[in-house]
Design a protein around this nucleic acid. Sequence first.
DNA 1: GCAAAAGTGTTTCAATTACACCCATGT
DNA 2: ACATGGGTGTAATTGAAACACTTTTGC
Lengths: 242, 242
Amino acid sequence: MTIHAEAPADRVTPTAVEDERVSLAVSTVIFALRPHPVTGEPTIWLPLVRRIREPHLGRWALPGGPLRPDEDLAASARHTLERTTGFAPRYLEQLYAFGRIDRSPDRVVSIVYWALVRAEEDAHGVVGDNVEWFVADEVPALAFDHNEIIEYALTRLRAKITYSPIAYRFLPEEFTLAQLREVYEAVLGRRLDPANFRRQALRHLEPTGRCLSGRNHRPPALYRFPAPASPSPLTFAKEESR
Amino acid sequence: MTIHAEAPADRVTPTAVEDERVSLAVSTVIFALRPHPVTGEPTIWLPLVRRIREPHLGRWALPGGPLRPDEDLAASARHTLERTTGFAPRYLEQLYAFGRIDRSPDRVVSIVYWALVRAEEDAHGVVGDNVEWFVADEVPALAFDHNEIIEYALTRLRAKITYSPIAYRFLPEEFTLAQLREVYEAVLGRRLDPANFRRQALRHLEPTGRCLSGRNHRPPALYRFPAPASPSPLTFAKEESR
DNA sequence: GCAAAAGTGTTTCAATTACACCCATGT
DNA sequence: ACATGGGTGTAATTGAAACACTTTTGC
């Protein structure tokens, strides 16, 4: 109990569930970009795990688990990420704490993080029997309120990408402007003007000097996102750094 | 335990603090606008409560308390708000879940809300021996990480007011444009051009027809913020409605 | 040469900013 | 009358959007 200064008698002794404590879990919505199975266009994917116990046994759910007493919140999210994708997050931020009383038979508050990872091929290797990747807006009916949570995470991703340079975290170290634009188009769900996009994007990128040849058109230049000079120029949204 | 699908043996049995559970508290940063004690200009204030037990006995802290198993997160925040200011919140939103391992001697995760209330005179009445209002950027050294939390809440308030119409929640039902502008000036900490502010603000306001006389200049018109037609046009940030 | 995408230039439009100016009221 | 803020008008600036056009590669 942290900050309880006043405790009127009528609030100390609740109805019935007296000795029952509230338990705390940490889950993570992990986003990656991969080609859509039918259209082939870059699409948002996420990994889900199959529940191996009640409640909701057998249904798909967000990866996560109970918070260990010796573990920070973000560290917990990082671990589920490692378990599920085998990668360290390229971006990790707290999403929201979900605590509705009726979201689970027992009383569980879930602190949910969202993460961006690269869609390397290796990621496939980690997928076991109980982990499977889904296209983000084609997920089945999930356990608990996890559909809601994913909806909200997508909202946040789409909002954040418009004002914060996180798109490059889906991509390899060096990338073309077309690749970066495809990330934006996949997330926002609409086409962007290549000319205008280029001008805006270049304000935040630095050229590597190299370029990508081999396709049947003019070879595009490769860029990288410069590491920020100060530890965090504007810690606006409490991003968890590595 | 909600969504634990995989539990490798090395993670089930932690180091030492095995049976120790993590406990959960809900705290609220409550903002109101009042004249600054020396300059008299509108300023952000917030109420703090004095701790009546260890740890940090005697220090000021955010109002809050342990989460009851039969209570939703926002409901818990609403109660501390009622206890502390005697008012229902005019605005309530989840801020962040703070869970650093070292933030308290025992392991506590605090889910923090932030709220806006009107600075009615009545609010003074509720202030007991253990509750006191402080100017937001003149708070003393607080218990736990509560100084940090308040800093972050202020950041969020200042950011949010620039893109979301929450300023009017500091004000009575009907208000003048000058009052509304003073809210923005107090929160943002800089003067705004009255002419330009008016044009922008009018896009979201509706006139009441009445105006405010009695001052030694042209009487300003009174406006109100129209109730949104749909339940929530853009539930962008999971605002908790009443 | 042709297709396809990279990359440049230009025009239009909307929103913000700065600031000059008039209006209505109490003293 | 005049001080004080309420309220209107307007020109300058900025950035986003639309789109025509040139460049460079593979075939």
